[in-house]
């Protein structure tokens, strides 16, 4: 139940109960033509029936190319958008039945850190205001208590208490991302949505931030929904990975199995396109023909079939379902039927 629990509550650590469960989530955007006589001309299926479990204290990563629906999924989780169909369960309670108190609790329990710390922090606010804004919104605290919490949060993310009185422009990218993380932590969340948290940062800073996120996860038993397109980062951070293509999850597995034994041809192509760590390292090159099709008019059958190097006849007509072919490793592809 959605009791006001501390992040490291004991019940949350037992394995088989998901903190967040998405079940058959769809988000369809209607497309209209004309202003006066609006005509419904099509539907963009940004997210088209995905089900995932985010376990307490673990990282679930969504990977896929731009437009595959990763961010739309995270927006629904942040209550910035509503699914057209399907249910989101938080601590086993369906989100669409939340009471007002549950809703407030949920909003405090789910926070986000975005890609670009230059645009995600208000330049006119001081760091202590930025960090304490969610605190003030969600809790009634004395001014001293707020100040104390800000100081503590700054230290937790590796900044100094005197940074509280500065403005965002006085910080480097890495430090700004630390501020964004401190703000996200301020309400003692259970889940943080990380949308490309390091891709706008300098290379030498990325490892610092990734390590910080890992340490925080271990200390506060945080769950993360990580959206990233760097597969090596995903492997480093995740406990579970979902590969998305045109609004659907085409493969889901723990990272080691996914990257050592990818099954779906699209996953294989993504891995083959990622850059090597050493000049002598050769990857099997899988060249995809064409581009990601428009989500307005997705291909029938398996959405990937027009680009798939292993395409078969039935791929054009039958929609493959996500099925476990090995324990814990599910794929939506007819090749494995």
């Amino acid at each position: 139940m959605a009791a006001v629990a501390t992040p490291n509550s004991i019940e949350a650590s037992t394995g088989d109960q998901a903190l967040v469960r998405l079940e058959g989530i769809r988000r369809h955007f209607p497309v209209y033509r004309g202003n006066l006589l609006r005509k419904h001309t099509g539907t963009v299926k940004a997210v088209d029936g995905i089900s995932i479990n985010i376990m307490p204290g673990q990282t679930y990563s969504l990977v896929g190319e731009s437009g595959c629906g990763k961010t739309t999924t995270s927006r629904m989780l942040l209550m910035a958008d509503k699914p057209t169909d399907g249910d989101i369960y938080f601590d086993s309670r369906p989100m669409n039945q939340f009471s007002g108190a549950e809703r407030r609790n949920f909003r405090a329990s789910v926070q986000a850190v975005f890609q670009d710390p230059w645009s995600s922090l208000n330049p006119r606010m001081r760091v202590d205001q930025i960090i304490s804004e969610p605190l003030v919104t969600h809790q009634r605290l004395s001014r001293d208590a707020v100040r104390g919490q800000v100081q503590e949060l700054l230290q937790v993310v590796g900044l100094h208490p005197f940074h509280a009185e500065r403005y965002p422009h006085e910080f480097s990218g890495g430090q700004r991302q630390r501020i964004a993380i401190a703000r996200a932590l301020s309400t003692r969340p259970k889940l943080i949505v990380l949308d490309e948290p390091v891709s706008a940062l300098d290379v030498s800073i990325r490892a610092q931030i990734l390590n910080l996120l890992k340490e925080l996860q271990a200390t506060y038993e945080l769950s993360y929904l990580l959206i990233a397109h760097n597969l090596a980062t995903v492997r480093y951070m995740s406990h579970m990975v979902g590969v998305m293509y045109l609004g659907k999850i085409v493969e889901e597995s723990p990272p080691i199995e996914l990257f050592t034994d990818p099954q779906h041809p699209y996953t294989k192509a993504l891995i083959s396109a990622s850059l090597p760590a050493h000049p002598r390292q050769q990857r099997e090159e899988i060249v995809l023909t064409g581009e990601v099709p428009s989500p307005l008019d997705p291909p029938g059958g398996c959405a990937f079939h027009p680009r798939c190097p292993f395409v078969m006849e039935r791929c054009a007509t039958d929609i493959p379902v996500l099925r476990e072919y090995q324990p814990g490793h599910a794929t939506a592809c007819h090749l494995y039927d």
Binding site: S172, A207, Q208
Partner: peptide
């Protein structure tokens, strides 16, 4: 040396990445 070590690698697993302290 530090830069090369601090980049995660798709083909190996590490618990903690060696990171470079400070900033440019």
């Amino acid at each position: 040396e530090a830069l090369l070590q601090s980049v995660p690698d798709l083909d190996t697993d590490v618990d903690m990445l060696p990171s470079i302290e400070g900033q440019p």
